[in-house]
Design a protein around this nucleic acid. Structure first.
Length: 600
RNA sequence: CGGGGUGUGGCGCAGCCCGGUAGCGCGCUUGCUUUGGGAGCAAGAUGUCGAGAGUUCGAAUCCCUCCACCCCGACCA
């Protein structure tokens, strides 16, 4: 490929509406151009990258025995009514009517369509299992499209659906897909991690998300460096460190066993730790203007872990009239709204007037002492002694507070916080680390949800009608391009892994137009590499050296060869990898071999 | 949908508060010079100032309405 025949249009400055690096660089390098909010044109350069990702995914899916097909982007709305998913999907579904006023949707996913196909085509257990997939443009009317191609409304996705005669066979295929996805992301040259995901609303037993690791990722991931454990922080269970668990809180006489949420087993019995002999008394101290735990801890000269944070919520019920709920978290911990929602149901944060009504104090100084009403205590708080909390009096906090003496032992103890760095790993194999990721793949055991709703059945060996077990497996093709750039970039531009770079090698000749020997050497190398099956770009534009270098570094081509009279005198060409600081002189005759080696 | 912000040549911005007929940098065109890290000089082209209505002798600037886009919260590959 020659640059003079290609379309290259780079920008020095990024449009101001591009927020994150990958979006800015994709715009600057001329990979994409915006048409409307969340809708982008893939320019020739960007398309090359997209196709490379797509092809790797396709090769590995085929290799795993899945069959490619192509379903319609436009689907009749009746199918969504039949599956019962129409109302749930809501405004994200782009709906439209044809000239006969019949309702259609532009498919955001294809469970309904594929199930419809399979229910018509597959009759017998002899035709199972089957795995169909497609690589197709999807449309989801996102609430807030942003980050360019990473969260667009229109996007390219690989979606696959498998059908089985038994749950065991579905699990087998799920494992195959887990391994296939691992191969795909490895081949793409990305740093990634498979994390356990919520099976939530759809139900089902198994689900993993595949995340490309990048500091700018939208999802926080908790993982254990010493084991395979990895989960979205929304899901990662916060368990007590052994040291914390050993600390028991004092109990006053007559307190019985507590109700436990989520299978809690914290021993409520203290050994010789009674308030009377070893605990200081509760004291009310003035903390003017110190509304945050951080400020209070600093003001009192105590560690943040000794403070308790109170969060006031109102439950939300369809009937109206919510209930006031007080949540207790350790000062250094953050509320996990999903976990809290599982304990108390739907909620919203309480308004200031509601807080004052319930506790007699403004937020910042509220606490559980003297509070009557629903209280949910985080596991970590339940084992605290002599802690600090608000006094329900503006400008005052309480120190030396203990359960069982200053307030009742909590009725409800639950895991309602986000895990933090160095929490024990839930699998018991070390400590958790946190990182950020971009979700680029998701595998899911759907089970019979859609098959049941759409009556997708088969006849088993005994001639009996059975509902099929289903799995579904998605990969965000266009999002991967953004994610790869998010993971690989520097001040000069994109750093693509060779597997998905628009070109593997770029030849930059010095004075191509006028220097006969340069032109001959550049052409020869170009042809040789092209014949060897390498994606090579020869920059034969009549540009100055500096702007050619800058262009290709911005675009992110991983390997560069400079052909100049200077080196040619000694029979040398200059090689430089995108991340190298210096270039290397290589004999003209051995350059192609050198590159084949470098590309791998 | 709620809260905040921005719309001025292709891109990045100034001008707006305090109305007087639009400017800068990059890019683009032509010529000459230059040619190993986004060249220099010279000459040029490109704007219904987001749209509509209003105030005014006069509106990019003030008022109203609408639209688009962006940012902060609820979604997902």
């Amino acid at each position: 490929m020659r640059a003079s025949q290609f379309f290259i249009n780079t920008l020095k400055e990024a449009p101001s509406d591009a927020e994150i690096v990958s979006h800015q660089l994709m715009l600057r390098a001329g990979l994409i151009r915006r048409l409307a909010g969340g809708i982008y044109t893939w320019m020739p350069l960007g398309l090359r990258v997209l196709r490379k990702v797509e092809n790797i995914v396709r090769e590995e899916m085929n290799r795993a025995g899945a069959m490619e097909m192509l379903m319609p982007a436009v689907q009749p709305f009746e199918l969504w009514e039949e599956s019962g998913r129409g109302p749930k999907y809501g405004p994200e579904l782009l709906r439209l009517k044809d000239r006969h006023q019949r309702e259609f949707v532009i498919g955001p996913t294809h469970e309904e369509v594929i199930t419809d196909v399979v229910r018509r085509e597959v009759r017998s257990y002899r035709q199972l299992p089957r795995h169909f997939y497609q690589i197709q443009t999807k449309f989801r009317d996102e609430i807030r499209p942003r980050f360019g191609v990473m969260r667009g409304r229109e996007f390219l996705m690989k979606d696959g659906y498998s059908f089985h005669t038994s749950f065991a066979d579905l699990q087998r295929e799920y494992q195959v897909m887990y391994e296939t996805y691992t191969r795909i992301f490895t081949r793409l040259g990305l740093k990634f991690r498979a994390v356990a995901a919520d099976t939530g609303a759809i139900g089902g037993t198994g689900s993993h998300e595949f995340h490309v690791l990048a500091d700018s990722g939208e999802d926080a991931i908790a993982f254990c460096p010493d084991s395979d454990y990895a989960a979205n922080v929304e899901l990662a269970e916060a368990i007590l460190a052994p040291a914390e668990g050993a600390v028991t809180f004092p109990l006053s006489q007559g307190e019985g066993p507590r109700e436990r949420v989520g299978g809690e087993h914290i021993s409520p019995v203290g050994a010789g730790d009674t308030p009377s002999n070893s605990q200081p008394l509760m004291q009310k101290v003035a903390t003017p203007g110190k509304a945050r735990c951080e400020d209070v801890a600093e003001f009192l000269g105590l560690p943040l872990t000794q403070t308790v944070k109170c969060i006031a919520l109102m439950t939300e019920k369809p009937e109206g009239a919510g209930e006031f709920v007080l949540l207790l978290l350790r000062g250094d911990h953050g509320l996990n709204e999903i976990k809290a929602q599982k304990v108390i149901g739907d909620f919203r944060f309480a308004r200031e007037d509601e807080i004052v009504a319930a506790l007699g104090s403004k937020p910042g100084y509220i606490g559980p002492v003297g509070y009557v009403g629903r209280l949910v205590v985080d596991r970590s708080v339940a084992v605290m002694r002599n802690f600090v909390c608000g006094a329900n009096d503006e400008g005052f906090h309480l120190t030396g507070v203990n359960f069982g003496r200053d307030l009742p032992v909590p009725e409800t103890v639950a895991d309602i916080r986000n895990v933090v760095e160095n929490d024990p790993s839930p699998d018991g194999k070390g400590k958790l680390s946190l990182c950020r990721g971009i979700e680029v793949g998701h595998i899911f055991q759907l089970r019979t949800k859609y098959a049941e709703a759409l009556k997708c059945t088969f006849l088993d060996e005994s001639g009996k009608d059975q509902v099929m077990e289903m799995g579904c497996y998605g990969i965000g093709i266009s999002r991967i391009v953004g994610a790869a750039i998010e993971q690989g970039n520097d001040q000069r531009g994109i750093i693509f892994p060779t597997a998905i770079a628009p070109f593997a090698v770029v030849i930059v000749p010095m004075n191509y137009a006028k220097s006969e020997p340069v032109r001959a050497a550049a052409n020869a190398l170009h042809d040789e590499l092209q014949n060897a099956g390498i994606d090579v770009m020869l920059d034969d534009r009549d540009e100055r050296a500096g702007s050619m270098f800058a262009d290709w570094e911005l675009i992110g081509v991983p390997h560069r060869v400079v052909v100049g009279e200077r080196g040619l005198k000694d029979g040398k060409l200059e090689y430089k990898g995108r991340t190298d600081t210096d270039s290397t002189l290589v004999d003209v005759t051995s350059m192609s071999g050198f590159l084949l080696e470098a590309i791998g």
